[in-house]
């Protein structure tokens, strides 16, 4: 029996997440792994929006901010369990994305990029200025979800780093599974049709505006959950999480790895999360090397690393 492409990708991802810890020399690698998974999750959202539907958002960190601050605020102010706070953050993000996207996505072109840019900056400003609630630019602590203690009671003792590695890894797998399912569904095919040509998609009866709005809303949920996970594992959050640079980082990761492919985008997250850690040796040249890597990929592998390399390999095989 041959595995479908979807299950092959998921299996590879699962094996990588499950087996890599065998080679980790210290707890620090679990932390880096968890960060990669969180970034990967957010970037899958970008794949759905940009890779499938062909829309660009420059404010996705705003949704990460909503998710992060939901995790920080809801348990204390609303008495919600931290896990329900994640759900609340996701719901709020989806609602906001729907409200922001609904008027804009009826238009063709790059209006979403500009509107989302404004939206992201707005969220960051609110988080910095609402000092009484959010602690302002100095940030605020985030309550622990208590899952680690639960596992401890069940006899499974994990360090904080290990726990978040497995937790974020699991979330990434679920996120990737959902995105790959979407790709293979009629909605996914309709999204790709509209990516190819909005006019053509409309003539075959696809509700373009509604589909784009759906993609935007789903991707906002991904960013929001990623933001919540980051906040809970850091146990402290500042408005930086909603900052413009974070939005740009997400898009860059997706484009670098291959915005049309879930695995590619995760790979982009791997590279851009790992590089700054590897490059601490050349701290002064870090930005330069990052820039050079990106320019080279754009010139020589315009579809992103994974899709371009996959095509090259396939071409050689034939």
């Amino acid at each position: 029996m041959r595995l479908s492409a979807k299950w092959t990708q998921l299996l590879i991802l699962f094996l990588l997440i499950a087996l890599l810890p065998l080679f980790f020399p210290s707890g620090y690698y679990f932390r880096v792994g968890a960060l990669i998974f969180v970034n990967g999750l957010a970037v899958i959202g970008i794949v759905i929006l940009t890779g499938y539907a062909g829309q660009i958002s420059l404010g996705h960190a705003g949704f990460a901010g909503i998710g992060a601050y939901a995790s920080a605020l809801a348990p204390g102010h609303l008495g919600l369990h931290p896990l329900l706070a994640v759900v609340l953050g996701a719901l709020v993000s989806a609602a906001v994305a729907w409200l922001v996207g609904r008027p804009i996505l009826r238009l063709k072109g790059y209006y979403l990029a500009v509107a989302s840019l404004g939206f992201g900056i707005l969220v960051a400003m609110v988080l910095s200025n609402e000092r009484a609630l959010t602690g302002g630019p100095d940030g605020m602590p985030v309550p622990d979800p208590g899952l680690r203690d639960l596992l401890k009671d069940l006899g499974l003792k994990l360090t904080g780093g290990e726990f978040w590695y497995w937790c974020c890894g699991l979330c990434l797998l679920i996120g990737a599974w959902a995105a790959l399912n979407l790709q293979a569904s009629p909605t996914g095919r309709a999204l790709r049709a509209l990516h190819g040509s909005e006019v053509a998609a409309r003539t075959v009866g696809i509700d373009v505006a509604r589909l784009k709005l759906q993609a935007f809303t789903i991707s906002a949920v991904y960013a929001s959950v990623a933001g919540s996970l980051l906040a809970m594992q850091n146990r402290f959050i500042t408005p930086d999480v909603a900052g413009f640079m974070h939005s740009i980082e997400m898009v860059t990761m997706a484009v670098l790895g291959g915005v049309g492919s879930v695995i590619g985008a995760i790979f982009g997250a791997v590279i851009l999360t790992l590089l700054p850690q590897v490059l601490t040796v050349f701290a002064d040249y870090e930005q330069m090397v990052l820039g050079a890597v990106m320019i080279l990929v754009m010139i020589f592998l315009p579809e992103g690393l994974i899709p371009s390399l996959a095509r090259k390999l396939r071409g050689r095989g034939e």
């Binding site: 620090y28 780093g161 980051l230 850091n234 402290f236």
Partner: peptide, 16 residues
């Protein structure tokens, strides 16, 4: 100046 990076580096300093 990024708190997220600072946490990663702190982990690295301690663990690695």
């Amino acid at each position: 100046g990024d708190p997220n990076k600072a946490l990663t580096f702190a982990t690295r300093l301690v663990e690695d």
